[in-house]
Computed example of a mutant assay.
Amino acid sequence: MNRNAFTESLTKEGFPDAVVVTREANAEMAVHEHPFEAKALILEGEMSIRVGDEERAYHVGDVFHLLPHKPHSERYGPNGVTYLVGRKQ
């Protein structure tokens, strides 16, 4: 998905303004959860998200969606990752 289409979809789904997040190369975030719904578009690099026993890799153009209070962990690729994310309560 491209950035404009993604931003339009966030607006239609009631997400407030999106923000750009950058994570460093080869870093990890242990299991955690957020009090908000998150929907993000990968702009650069790659990352993997593990929910329960399932891990999925995301690359440029991919979109991930996490519901509030969903425990998950994150791993960032060899070049890190930059994504555009909308968050709503």
Rank of each mutant, 00 (worst) to 15 (best):
E28W: 04
L10Y: 03
L43C: 04
D17F: 07
L66N: 04
R23C: 11
E55Q: 09
I42T: 03
H34C: 08
M29P: 01
L41V: 08
E13D: 15
E37M: 09
L41D: 07
G14N: 03
V19P: 07
K70S: 15
M29V: 13
G61I: 03
A27I: 09
S73V: 08
V19K: 15
D17H: 06
H32Y: 07
H34K: 11
G61Y: 05
E28K: 14
H32N: 10
F36A: 11
V19F: 14
I42N: 01
L43R: 05
M1S: 05
E28L: 11
V20Q: 02
V60Q: 04
F15L: 09
Y58W: 07
V31N: 14
P78Q: 05
Y58A: 01
L66Q: 03
F6R: 03
K70N: 14
P71L: 08
V63S: 00
D53H: 09
R56Y: 04
V60G: 01
V20W: 01
M47R: 06
F64Y: 12
S48W: 12
A18M: 10
D53F: 07
E37P: 06
S9T: 12
A38G: 15
E54Q: 08
K12N: 09
N26Y: 02
K70P: 04
E55P: 03
P71N: 02
T11E: 13
E28A: 11
L43G: 04
V21D: 00
E54K: 11
G77R: 01
A40L: 12
R3K: 12
T22P: 01
S48K: 15
G77M: 05
E28I: 13
V31M: 14
H69E: 11
F64E: 03
H32R: 10
V31E: 15
R3M: 13
P68R: 09
V19R: 15
P16Y: 07
I49V: 12
D17P: 09
K12M: 10
R75I: 09
T22Y: 02
L67P: 04
G45L: 01
F6A: 01
R50Q: 14
P16M: 04
V51T: 13
H32D: 06
A5H: 09
R50W: 06
A27C: 10
L43P: 01
E24P: 09
S48E: 14
Y58V: 02
S73G: 05
E33G: 00
E8Y: 12
F36G: 08
A5Y: 02
M29W: 10
F36T: 15
F64H: 03
G14M: 06
N2I: 00
E37F: 04
H34F: 07
L43E: 05
P16R: 04
A38V: 15
I42V: 15
R23S: 13
K12D: 11
G14P: 05
V21E: 00
N2L: 03
H32G: 07
H59K: 14
H69K: 15
V20Y: 02
K12R: 12
V21W: 00
H69A: 11
R75N: 06
T11A: 15
L67G: 11
L43V: 01
F15I: 09
M29Y: 10
E55Y: 03
E28N: 12
A5S: 08
A18E: 10
A38I: 14
G14Y: 06
E37G: 00
